[in-house]
Design a protein around this nucleic acid. Structure first.
Length: 288
DNA sequence: ACGACACATCAAGTTACTTCA
DNA sequence: ACTGAAGTAACTTGATGTGTC
């Protein structure tokens, strides 16, 4: 049996089937705002005195109770929440050949709706939050690996494939990019922390070395008669290099390093990259 | 050519909801 | 059973680019 409900501008198709002493409904809900349709919602209506072992809750659907000739005052319909473990084949609706994606959406929305029969549902302002299925998430993840942004064509194709609204796909990609950036920021922070610790340790070591040299200078002033060693400072890394025979080599190496850094990362201007360049190590990167 | 406008898309921040320990 | 934290879908806002008049 199939009923066509016309409620305002949004006709809803309701498939009705009986099974034992319960009635199954499959309702195609239209999304007024965006003109697309939600996947059908499967409801199992229970007798007023439930005797079956499974859990159930109440779903407030005023328009549905009207449509079924129920009294308005009893518009809280006992609803069996179709569980993940339920056998899909047991659903007696003629429209039960919905995809696994649709079914997942259906199940989760039933659960949400049955718990949250709030006033918001009546004025239509509550946000309908669904949980994407594993398949949907995996598919979106795969797409994200290929391209982190979508053109309108790709968006529509993905939405169609996953039985989602294009807006949902768009939001998912926006959130996914935000998550990637957040993770990258966390990695950067950790990396900078390690850099800081390393530099602090090096600074400590150099301070100690300086103290030792000063102590040596006061104890053995005759050293001052030796030719003075000139110290040069690398402008990039602020390392001190001596201009003695070995010092010259170090200074040369330091200069080479600086030049390489300038050549290798001329376009990347963020601070982590600059520090990476100065320390001659690669910045860790999160893969998409 | 230029400015005004509408529209689409993005990042950043926030909210609301779900899940899990 | 309850609770708080974490994860995340959906939302808001402001900026920017593009097409059209």
């Amino acid at each position: 049996m199939e009923l066509a409900l016309s409620l305002g501008d949004t006709p809803k198709t309701v498939s009705l089937a009986t099974k034992n002493d319960s009635v199954s409904l499959c309702i195609a809900l239209a999304d007024d705002k965006r003109g697309s349709s939600y996947p059908p919602v499967q409801l199992d209506l229970l007798p007023s005195t439930p005797v079956l072992p499974f859990s159930h809750s109440h779903l407030r659907i005023p328009w549905l109770s009207d449509a079924l000739g129920m009294e308005r005052v009893t518009s809280e319909i006992p609803v069996r929440v179709v569980d993940d473990t339920d056998d899909g084949a047991a659903l007696s609706s003629p429209n039960s050949a919905v995809s696994s994606f649709q079914m997942d959406y259906c199940v989760r929305n039933n659960r949400k709706s049955s718990e949250g029969a709030s006033d918001d549902d009546e004025n239509g302002s509550s946000r309908k939050k669904l949980r994407l299925s594993k398949q949907q998430s995996a598919f979106l993840e795969d797409s994200f690996k290929e391209h982190t942004t979508l053109n309108p064509k790709q968006k529509l194709a993905l939405a169609k494939q996953l039985n989602l609204r294009p807006r949902q796909v768009e939001v998912w990609f926006q959130n996914r990019r935000a998550r990637t950036k957040l993770k990258q920021t966390e990695v950067d922070c950790e990396y900078l922390k390690r850099c800081c610790e390393s530099l602090t340790e090096e600074n400590r070591r150099l301070q100690k070395e300086l103290q030792e040299l000063r102590a040596l200078k006061t104890c053995q002033p005759f050293f001052m008669q030796l030719p003075a060693t000139t110290l040069t400072m690398c402008p990039a890394c602020e390392r001190v290099a001596t201009n003695t025979a070995t010092g010259a080599a170090a200074a040369a190496a330091s200069t080479t390093t600086t030049n390489n850094n300038n050549a290798s990362a001329p376009t990347n201007n963020n601070s982590v990259s600059q520090i990476s360049a100065a320390m001659s190590v690669d910045k860790p990167r999160i893969l998409p």
